[in-house]
Amino acid sequence: MCGRFVLTHPSEALAQLFEAAPSNDLPPVPNFNICPTQAVHVVTSDEGGRRLQAMRWGFLPHWYKTPADGPLLINARADTLAEKPAFRAACRERRCLIPASGFYEWTKDRDDRRLPWYIHRADGAPVAFGGVWQAWEREGERLQTCAIVTTDAAPSLAHIHHRMPLSIEAADWPLWLGEAGKGAATLMHPAPDGVFDFHRVDPAVNSNRASGPRLIEPIAA
């Protein structure tokens, strides 16, 4: 799964990288502790081209009466994405990319204390999470919302957590975004070993109120 992530790359650089027109309401970066329900950067594509825009991290199916009605859907499993009522239409019609610099996962020690790890691309480039999005509207309130698709973890990361976000390589962005026809399902697999690196970080990140670059600095494991 993915419950927290990091974005340090500037919005202007992301717009250039993804060849997307940026919206004027993008959330501030850097953010070293992005939490569910916060606004995140999302790349979408339609006949007008690609757009880099802000969306709520927490997918809202159209039948939710309020944003708090039902489970908080921050992740969507790749193996059931096309079957779940909440995601199956978005899987076909509304796929997106969610830029990140890295993400957090946790293990536990012998005393059941949560030990955070920071996971990032070994080459330092931004990660493009595969995602799905949904426009939700009720009684005049309208929200653009998204969820991160997850797969089995890469073998080198499985000792930290058995799931990880779907990572889409740059050559496959057109296929995931629907620009290159059908076949996006072929992309829903774990990242190969060697793409991601990881290190232990300070338990300060266990608090969703923590912030600052110290959260991703390595500590002794």
Rank of each mutant, 00 (worst) to 15 (best):
E139M: 05
T186E: 15
V132T: 07
I160H: 01
I160G: 01
E141S: 10
R88A: 11
D123P: 02
R51E: 09
Y64N: 11
A170L: 05
T66G: 07
W136G: 04
Q144T: 10
D69W: 02
K84D: 11
L175F: 09
H159A: 15
A158N: 06
P165H: 09
N75P: 14
S167D: 03
R51W: 07
L166N: 05
T145I: 09
R163F: 03
A171Y: 03
L52V: 05
V132P: 01
G48E: 13
D111E: 15
A78H: 06
R95V: 14
G49V: 14
L52Y: 02
A180S: 14
A153V: 05
L81T: 10
H62T: 12
L177D: 05
R92M: 07
P99I: 10
P190S: 13
A153Q: 07
W173Y: 14
R94L: 06
H162M: 09
V149P: 01
P126Q: 03
T107M: 09
G131V: 13
P116W: 00
G70N: 08
H161D: 03
Q53R: 15
K182Q: 15
M164A: 04
R50C: 09
H189E: 03
L52P: 07
I98K: 04
A68G: 10
I119C: 02
A147T: 06
E105C: 08
V132K: 02
E139G: 05
D112I: 01
K84G: 01
G130R: 00
Y64T: 12
A100I: 03
A90V: 06
C91W: 15
L97K: 02
R142F: 10
F87P: 01
P67W: 10
W63T: 01
K182C: 07
R56E: 11
P126A: 04
L177W: 03
P126K: 12
N75V: 14
A78T: 02
T151E: 11
A180K: 09
W176S: 00
A90I: 06
G178D: 12
K108D: 09
R121I: 02
D152V: 06
G140K: 04
G140I: 06
P99Y: 02
P61Y: 12
A171K: 10
R121Q: 04
G130K: 04
R121G: 01
W136P: 01
G131K: 03
Y118C: 02
G58A: 06
E141V: 14
D109K: 05
